[in-house]
Measured scan of single mutants.
Amino acid sequence: KKIKIKIKVYNPETKEVLELEIEVSEEEAEELAKKLAEELEKKGYKIEEVEI
């Protein structure tokens, strides 16, 4: 079964909002969402919402 992940991120420095969407297997979904959120935060983005 495929799971659709939508991530909306906001960069306070540039006032930019990015929306990302990807489909992955159920097993990958939670781990991938967690890794993406961590990487984006390292780059200065503030995570507003992660929906699985």
Rank of each mutant, 00 (worst) to 15 (best):
L40K: 00
K35R: 08
E31G: 15
E39Q: 08
S25H: 13
V50R: 00
K46R: 06
K35G: 06
E13R: 11
E27W: 07
L20C: 09
E39D: 05
K6F: 10
E19Y: 15
K15T: 05
Y45P: 09
E21Q: 12
I22L: 13
K43I: 07
K8Y: 02
E21L: 15
E13Y: 07
I22K: 05
K43S: 04
K8W: 02
V24P: 02
S25K: 08
L18Q: 03
V17L: 06
E19F: 15
V9A: 13
K43Q: 13
A37K: 13
E26R: 06
E13I: 13
E21S: 15
V50T: 02
I7E: 00
L20N: 02
E26P: 07
T14E: 03
K4N: 11
L20A: 03
A33F: 09
E48K: 05
E39C: 10
E27V: 11
T14V: 06
K8V: 04
E16R: 05
L40S: 00
I7W: 03
L32C: 13
E23F: 14
G44C: 03
L32T: 12
V17H: 15
E13V: 09
I22P: 01
L40A: 02
N11Y: 03
K43A: 05
G44W: 01
K2N: 06
E13T: 12
K2T: 14
E19S: 12
E38Q: 13
L32V: 15
T14W: 07
E51V: 15
L18S: 03
Y45Q: 08
E41F: 04
L40C: 03
V9T: 05
I22A: 14
A37L: 12
L40W: 13
K34G: 04
K34D: 05
I7Q: 00
E16Y: 14
K2Q: 11
E27Q: 12
A29E: 03
K34R: 13
Y10A: 06
E26S: 11
P12I: 06
L40F: 07
L36G: 00
K35C: 04
K2D: 05
A37N: 02
K8G: 03
E28T: 07
T14F: 05
K43L: 09
E41V: 08
I52M: 10
E21M: 12
I3S: 15
E16L: 09
E41S: 06
A37E: 04
E13G: 05
E28D: 15
E26M: 08
V50G: 00
E27H: 15
K4L: 13
E27I: 07
L32R: 11
L20F: 15
E26V: 05
K4P: 01
K4E: 03
E48A: 06
K34L: 06
G44Y: 01
K35A: 05
N11E: 05
E39T: 03
